[in-house]
Design a protein around this nucleic acid. Structure first.
Lengths: 213, 213
DNA sequence: CAATTGTTTGAGTATTTACTCACTCAATTA
DNA sequence: TAATTGAGTGAGTAAATACTCAAACAATTG
């Protein structure tokens, strides 16, 4: 049930460092149960059972049930915005000044579709929390500009200056791109619609046309 | 807190017929509390308090807490897909054969943005349920083709035949439109971003360009 | 081995919560 | 007025659940 690559997110965030076997199992079981029934309907007892661990062990690592949830959500907040955009900076083979609209859209879209597909369980937990937890929303908003804003801002501005792109606010452009990615992922995850490369290509073409000047 | 027009959805679905004052108050209070803290974290006691009603009264109208939830969600399932599309059928002043891509996108987008804005509380409850309740997803999928599929299918086919639109599957086209609407609504409802007509116009233009041939 | 440190256990507890049911009250009808 | 009906009440109950804590256990160190 749980996507195998899902652990990578936590390994990268060094969440697993100095964790015992049982503690890692608790984390994985929590992801699985939270994603299946939702945080509020998931009992710590069920998580402990699935992890093959005593219930009390959960609370020796985490202050409470919410602490366990935060351990799952925090890495998502810090990686939901694409790090791949650094590929467009000066050190990269693709020079930012010469980036085309198509290569920009193509890179970002594929990268995020891949990321969301690979982390679907934690994503579901995250989205659910986003709906009702204002703290998570605020944290996400704070993460947005610090993570990649300068870089992406620069790229968009260059494209606009070269008249290769519509003259919208950058936030509008990014929101449209996020919408398209989200739409595909929702269809895939919730409605079992296949995520074929044909559709991804269609969406990339659509976005390029939509954002072209 | 609760959008005043929200009741219209239930009046239209004749949910309120033969309901007493107190029962209507229960429904409204439930919408408010469910939307604020989520179904699982909402206690029937709090709903009863907010409705200024004895707790037991909830269970004389509804079999259980989930029955109350269903009474809220069902009307959404039956109205989430745009009824406005009947404006495009033969009886309408806008003849379906002469509809332009722009008028199509414009009408559908504005109508759904309006609908979602006006029903934001129930929408939130509905989306949350969509995440974890497969029954609701199935019901929604069943509703999709029966409600307006023929009509919209015809319109899209005509546009495609006249080479006014890309030759994608109709489901792809509609998914893209839904994605754009959803993105705007999410920004508006969760992140307090204003929903200015400038942005709506941008999105309409973007979609028209994206879907043009 | 002895001592120490940190991990794991799981029975026990306090609290919350959905739901019941015997009853009251108000309105309508005979 | 008396009888009937159905909405409304709210104290009470059984079950679920997050969290505690004292004890057991394992691993490492002196």
């Amino acid at each position: 049930m749980l996507n195998g690559t899902e652990l990578k997110l936590f390994a990268d965030a060094h969440v697993l460092d100095e964790m015992t076997d049982k503690q890692v199992r608790i984390l994985l079981a929590a992801i699985e149960v939270f994603a299946e029934k939702g945080y509020a309907n998931a009992s710590t007892k069920e998580i402990a059972n699935k992890a093959d661990v005593a219930e009390g062990n959960i609370f020796s690592k985490y202050k409470n049930k919410r602490g366990l949830l935060n351990a799952i959500i925090n890495p998502v907040i810090h990686s939901i915005f694409p790090a791949v955009l650094s590929d467009f900076n000066d050190a990269s083979p693709i020079q930012s000044n010469y980036v085309t609209l198509h290569s920009f859209v193509d890179t970002v879209l594929r990268d995020r579709v891949q990321f969301l597909k690979e982390n679907s369980a934690v994503l579901k937990i995250f989205v659910s929390e986003l709906l009702y937890n204002n703290d998570v929303r605020v944290k996400l908003m704070q993460q947005f500009p610090t993570s990649y804003w300068k870089n992406i801002n620069h790229n968009l501005n260059v494209l606009k200056e070269n008249h290769l792109m519509v003259d919208w606010e950058n936030t509008e452009i990014l929101k449209l791109m996020w919408s398209v990615v989200s739409g595909m992922i929702v269809g895939y995850l919730l409605f079992n619609q296949p995520l074929e490369s044909k559709e991804i290509n269609h969406c990339i073409d659509a976005l390029v046309k939509a954002l072209s000047r």
